[in-house]
Simulated scan of single mutants.
Amino acid sequence: MAKFLRFLLRVTLILFITSTVYLVICRWVYPPITLTQLGAVFGGYGLKRDYVSWEEISPNVKLAAMASEDQLFPDHGGFDWKALEKSLAKNPKKKKKLRGGGASTISQQTAKNVFLWQGNGVLRYVRKVPEFYFTKMIEWVWGKQRILDVYLNTIEMGPGIFGIEAAAQAYFGKSAKNLTRNEAAMIIACLPNPKIFTVKPVSRRVGWRSKMILREMNNIADDPDVHALTR
């Protein structure tokens, strides 16, 4: 038993060190593959992906992502504790901000997309501790701009479609840097379940949610911290 525990501790330590080194490398290099992307390949959806630099992503996309998924992204340290508290309380009478992932921030979603796995049930709870670690680490090592950059390049935006460039080409036949506000809102509206909430054909959810996102984009566009991350 003691030998097994030593082996388990050694494996855990190796995984911890290698994952931390990988995290630092990803400060400058886009992830070559993620578990979610592998899942799409083995699930028969294929893999449509084309990483693009920060400058090649339209400010409209960056604004839409924050307006929809995490309006406090420029200000928090990885976790929106107020939103988490509201989510746990499940009080429908309290006003809630528009956000697609409940209490999950863009930083948390990025950590999960790049370093961990999707899924609910038991796997969701097993994921919580490493998700906390990776979320804090990318906040410290990457910074906000890099987190949003990697998020928009790696998140699934359709069946087998990963990243904003592949989504822009698939849905609108143009590059990500040329997306309009309405187009950006429509793509982001497919989150968090792009296999069901389709952009083309436009699902009912994407239709009404994209309008809500446009309104929120107008509401937060003049915030100095938000504006600094959309340039």
Rank of each mutant, 00 (worst) to 15 (best):
M1Q: 14
M1P: 03
A2P: 13
F7P: 00
L8W: 07
R10G: 12
L13E: 15
I25C: 08
R27T: 14
R27S: 13
V29S: 07
L35I: 14
T36F: 08
Q37M: 15
L38G: 15
V41A: 09
F42R: 09
G43K: 02
V52Y: 00
S53L: 05
E56P: 02
E56D: 11
I57A: 00
V61K: 00
S68R: 03
D70N: 02
H76P: 03
G78H: 03
W81K: 13
W81T: 06
K82Q: 14
E85T: 10
N91R: 14
K94Q: 15
K96T: 11
K97E: 15
K97Y: 09
K97F: 10
R99N: 13
G102I: 03
Q108R: 06
Q108K: 03
Q109V: 01
T110H: 04
F115E: 09
F115M: 06
Y125I: 09
K128Y: 02
E139C: 02
W142A: 05
K144V: 07
Q145N: 13
I147H: 04
T154K: 00
G160W: 06
A168Y: 00
A170D: 07
Y171I: 01
K177E: 01
K177F: 00
K177A: 02
L179F: 00
R181F: 05
N182Q: 13
A185T: 08
A189K: 08
N193Q: 09
V202K: 10
S203Q: 11
R205V: 15
R205P: 11
G207Y: 10
K211A: 12
K211W: 01
P224G: 14
V226F: 11
H227R: 15
L229H: 03
L229E: 06
T230F: 06
R231D: 15
R231H: 14
